[in-house]
Design a protein around this nucleic acid. Sequence first.
DNA 1: AAAATTTGTCTATTGATATAGACAATTATA
DNA 2: TATAATTGTCTATATCAATAGACAAATTTT
Lengths: 248, 248
Amino acid sequence: MTGLASSIERRNGVSLWRQIADRILQGIASGDFAENAALPPEVALAERYGVNRHTVRSAIAALVQEGVLRAEQGRGTFVLSRKRLSYPIGARTRFSTGLQGQTSERHIALLSSSTEPASRRVAEALGIAKGAAAIRLETRGEADGHAVSRATTWFDAKRFAGIEAVMAETGSITASLKRFGVNDYLRHSTVLSARHADADDLAALDLQPGAIVLVTVAVNVTLDGQPIQFAESRFPAERVELKLSAGD
Amino acid sequence: MTGLASSIERRNGVSLWRQIADRILQGIASGDFAENAALPPEVALAERYGVNRHTVRSAIAALVQEGVLRAEQGRGTFVLSRKRLSYPIGARTRFSTGLQGQTSERHIALLSSSTEPASRRVAEALGIAKGAAAIRLETRGEADGHAVSRATTWFDAKRFAGIEAVMAETGSITASLKRFGVNDYLRHSTVLSARHADADDLAALDLQPGAIVLVTVAVNVTLDGQPIQFAESRFPAERVELKLSAGD
DNA sequence: AAAATTTGTCTATTGATATAGACAATTATA
DNA sequence: TATAATTGTCTATATCAATAGACAAATTTT
């Protein structure tokens, strides 16, 4: 028995690159090509399927376009995990607890922090005067070593002085707020949009140009309605989906 | 009614003529194009699918090749009845005589042959020692120019030495066996199953990926019960039905 | 018989597909 | 740091796919 699973056919109306793309998809589905691992190099695939390297490249390009693969010059071509993280959005949205059960490890890394005069938008959201001091945190959410969010968060500098240090230490917004006497908080509002990732997102989220990010702009408030946090978060659309839960 | 069930897509790796051929097949299956009746003229089809007449012609040419349509100059293009060949399976199963009356021409083409040590399964079927030399024939049954079966056949190499040459010459198992003194034989057992065609079947039987093959595993014996032939045959389910006759 | 209908053949042009080779750019490894 | 491995880009060429038009060949209709 020869045992060729399904050979490539020519002149049957289906282009070779499409046939090979389909076989790569099959290989991923069957576990032949492991998720999050490198595909065999282009030359090896070309030999395996009996076609030119450029034909394999066309197939890979199509799958990259479809968000199945990611090619990295000099390193290889990688199979993206097809399952997206499902990130719940609702009244009690919290980074860590929201991803519980989906990942084994998760934390928020503090990339940088600064104290700046509040812009009009920030001031309105936090209920402080425009130009008043606000603390700005640039963070990256990570789960199992993969970047899953990139956020810019604002606090009233008067009330939460020094929160950046606590944040760097604890790796958790919820834990940091506790240090300032905020034992519970609710999400007051969330605005959702999507756009192409900018240069900053690309670097922080390890994305390729053209990638899409989901953007949430949210205000968290204390139980009595006092605004304490204003944040814009970016999620890589290819790795994260947002699940809206009841209660807004 | 716009009613475009599935529109034609360009630049997705599947040629227009293949897409249109598939839609015509769909139309036949759904009764949109009646069997034994004329298809709409090429110009009408071209307009219906929004492509050039020559593109429709390519699609029709492919379906003519596949035995689905017949084009007649000046008259039209006709949907052939997809009556299947009825292949009798029974004690006296023979390729040629079994299809008598259904086809005008039929023969068995020898694709390749080899002598190999008998596997356990082959040895048991032929009543020889495991590892003893066995002749393996790879054949294709053809009727009216269409492939109707693909078989792997085993003989005891000691008793039927050189049968591959006779087979290539005569194109008939029955005639070949006669040369070795087997003037009559019976089918002892047949096991029937079905599966998707593998790459080999697809090529040999001129099928499209996903096609189904009927599989028979049979042992033929002499009148006194001595096993002489062991065969696995694959029949394209779309062109052949197996008719079980009395007497097993 | 003439006209209309329908499939068959031919030429021509354009863009997509596939192969081939060379080299650049990036990353990992010895 | 040099070398190897790997993806990215470029040029070139041949074939396939699709469109377009004209006309031939065969059949049916008028």
